[in-house]
Amino acid sequence: MEATADVVVNASRLCFVDPFGMALLGATFHTIRNQGRSVQICGLSAEMGGYLERMDVFEGIELVDCAPMPMQRHNRGDSLVELTRLGARRDVDEASFRLAHAVVGHIPGINPDEPPDEMTGYTAFERLVEPVQYALNELLENALTHAKGHGFPDACVWVASQYYPRKGMIQLAVVDDGCGFLASLRNHPALRRESHIDAIFTALMPRISCNRDLGLSSESVNQGVGLTTTFRIAEQAGGRLVIASGDAIHDTVGRSYQLTEDNFWQGVAVAMECRRDRLPDIRFRDLLPPLDAQPVRRLRFE
């Protein structure tokens, strides 16, 4: 990314892109264009071209020798979310709500407009949507809070998601081009070794945040629980997180490794996968880390 020349991508062997790949591509193309360089994509199949164009991945990109297969832009708000860029924390609530509804999708036998349960006030559809909305909220909040620090004031966040009906799986991706975990956590006492993979492991520990302890002098504090909670939502719904930052990738089902040679992600990229049918079983109260202490004051619930 430090080169000065225009970029030509040979996409002749590209046959599948998931939301994680789409968000990473969108962020990469944006960075290159912001450097005043152009991006050309060559050899893309008409089918892939049509799909990626429909997902809004090609903003400002020149396609060479490719006529994307026209795909009708009918409403697919029941299974996927086009690549979306966010830049401000005030957008988090609305974006999480909209994206969660879109990716949870149409479910046979469940009517989103049915009257809510009289006891709980929720419909069956809302029980599915809320864990995804919660996870997106925390991921976007984290990204928009941390990414802009340490010399990256213009950092943005890209989101894409899709429901895969054959596997019954939802994948959503939240990718930023900001400072990355290592820059955020470099001075944190919990970081054992100054490496990107250790920074990812540290970020996954509860109550770890670069600004947890700044308190009164900071414009923003953070309890350091959002990423842990998101991981537990994925885990309880039979899924996983894949996290990339700097030269490291960690998959929460157990694999982690360093990227080879010049491969590097400037920022944080998170993909969350989970089973849609497991979402209604999730209770947020079960996701919180254990408490070290009891409140020193009795809380007043009415």
Binding site: V92, D93, S96, H101, G121, Q133, N137, E141, T145, S220
Partner: peptide
């Protein structure tokens, strides 16, 4: 009145 659906989420709110 601050909720989207049944959830209120953002720190900005």
């Amino acid at each position: 009145k601050y909720a989207y659906g049944h959830l209120i989420g953002a720190r900005a709110t």
